[in-house]
Simulated scan of single mutants.
Amino acid sequence: MERRPGGRSARVRDAVRQATLAELGEHGYSGLTVESVAIRSGVHKTTVYRRWGSVEGLIADALELAREEPWPMPDTGSLQDDLREIVRLVRSGFADPVAGPISTAFVAAAVQSGDAARSLHDFFTARHEQAAVVVRRAVERGELPPGTDGAEVIRMAVAPIYYRLFVTHEPVTERDAERAADAAAAAARAGVIRVA
């Protein structure tokens, strides 16, 4: 028998995912439990354990679904402006009172769990590949040399934001975000971010 898309299984998965995100936002990774997700989602605890197995399984599934969500990509006609928009999007995501604590909890989970780290890696790989379209457009416009590594340009642009947030615990200003984007754009134009 074929399972109907959007049926009970999809509703259960969505309820558990939403409960996982809400619990992460309120209690962080250290406060996330299968029991709290089961209660919040209205899904029986044994079902959650059977399908997700653990907190790491809940994190992995939430990140997998988040990876599939589209990320709005700017198209300003300028690599530098596109990168500035992407970096601002990352910065504002962490500053958002709802999304910020959830994103922070995902990073904290990755520090404490190998499974969560692999899931977060896969999430970022997909995001960087999706954002690399702004680099491909810049190559097509002649703004960058052929062979520029799009995903690596994106990594270079956003890395200073993560460094400030999670290593030095400094605030990230608008100027910090612009400087990170501008540095990545300059490196890309200089031809130092090439596909290996």
Rank of each mutant, 00 (worst) to 15 (best):
S54P: 02
H44F: 00
I86K: 02
R17N: 11
Q80S: 14
W52P: 05
P97E: 01
A196M: 08
I86S: 00
H169S: 13
Q130E: 14
L144Q: 02
D182A: 13
T33Q: 05
V37F: 00
V167D: 03
R155C: 05
A157W: 09
A62N: 02
A22L: 06
L144E: 02
E174A: 14
A190C: 09
S9L: 15
G147M: 13
E178L: 11
A95M: 06
T104I: 05
D75L: 02
T148I: 00
P5L: 05
V98W: 00
E56L: 00
G31Y: 11
W52I: 09
L89P: 00
A187P: 04
L144T: 03
R179H: 04
F166C: 10
L120I: 04
R127E: 00
G77A: 06
A110S: 14
R11I: 09
A186G: 10
E85Q: 12
H128D: 12
A15C: 10
T47M: 00
H27W: 11
A60D: 03
R17F: 05
V172M: 08
P145W: 06
P97V: 01
A117I: 01
R13M: 13
H121R: 13
A108S: 14
S113E: 04
A38E: 03
P74R: 02
I86V: 14
G53H: 10
E69F: 06
A66I: 01
Y163R: 13
R17T: 14
E2D: 14
P5G: 03
G191S: 09
V195K: 12
Y162H: 15
I193M: 13
M73L: 15
A188E: 08
D149A: 15
R189H: 11
G150Y: 11
R67I: 02
E2Q: 15
L89C: 03
V135F: 12
A105R: 01
R136D: 14
D122G: 07
A19W: 01
P5A: 04
D14S: 15
A10D: 15
H27T: 11
L89R: 05
E35M: 00
P146I: 14
R91K: 12
A108C: 01
A183Y: 04
T168Q: 08
E69H: 11
T148H: 02
G53K: 12
E152S: 15
Y49L: 11
R141S: 04
I39R: 15
R118Q: 10
V107M: 07
I39M: 09
W52L: 08
V111K: 10
D149P: 06
F123V: 08
R84L: 02
I86C: 02
D82M: 03
G93I: 07
L32N: 00
D81Y: 04
H27D: 10
R84E: 09
V133N: 01
G53W: 08
V34P: 01
D81R: 12
S41K: 01
T33P: 00
T125A: 08
Q130P: 00
G77Q: 09
E56D: 13
A10K: 03
P5Y: 02
V133P: 00
R155I: 12
D115M: 07
T47E: 03
T125R: 12
A186V: 13
R189Q: 14
V55E: 07
Q130I: 07
G142W: 05
T125Y: 03
T125Q: 07
D75I: 01
A185I: 04
Y163C: 06
F94H: 13
Y49N: 06
A60C: 01
T148Q: 01
A126L: 06
G7W: 12
L63K: 08
